[in-house]
Amino acid sequence: MPSFLKKKKNLTILLSLVLIQMILISIQAPLGEEESFFKKMLLSVFIPVQDGVAYFFHGSNKFWRNYFFLHGIQVKNNLLQEKYFLLKHENELLRKALKKYQAEKEVEDIFKQAHKKIIAARIIGLDARNIFKSININKGSADGVKKDMVVLDLNSNLVGRIITVTLRGARIQLLTDNDAGVSVSSEENKSIGVLSGSGSGLCQVNYILNTDKNLDIGNIIITTGYDEIYPPGIRVGEIISIENLPSLFKMIIVKPYFNLSHSKRLAVIGVTAAEFY
């Protein structure tokens, strides 16, 4: 070792550690949204820990609410029973309507297939840097989750898509992430734009011309399917403001419908874009 390095051994160690991390950062640049091998490895190690902690926390919370703190349970139970009753009848009506067009066996097969295609998952962790960027779930490749699968909340509103998959868990890129991109249109008319997140809980629809007079505040935004990732017709959010900019395009702000503070449950649609199309 050169003598000046021996004299400044500690400083050399520091510089080496910083250099290693600089190399790690530069390796990621050509990968784009793909996460590096080292990061995936760390994620695979910590996702079971994350799942364990979330399970313990929610388990103890549930235990307290189910056995000691029973306030409001009766009201909630009545509401759920009413909802179950309505959904059961809606289901029956839909089955009957479908039977008009297809044989009974085919209808049963459709329902069985639809049931199999939904993977129920639970949120186990949020992004450490920005809670509107990504979340981790407890279902991974072992449960059939694949990259680019679409994730919905309990009310079938779009949440995001699977971006990284490990054996026992996966990371979801939320709609509200700055790098997210979804082809969308308004439910009322078909002005097509690209929705991306603002990193602060809201989204914006880009590339809608200033001359487009069809959009209004309160319009519902849905997916178009043109991006070949998100299937068409999924509800995304509602327009809360429209502003004409000096440039060619409007500034349209959308409030997404999904709300992760209401429920930790999510539905992963078990069909990739390639299978869907």
Binding site: M22, I25, R129, Q173
Partner: peptide, 24 residues
Amino acid sequence: MACGLIQDSFCLGVFGVAGIAKTL
């Protein structure tokens, strides 16, 4: 470095930002 990289693994995006800050 270890703590920073672990913290980075819980975020989407570039891996190593918190790593360098915590090493320093």
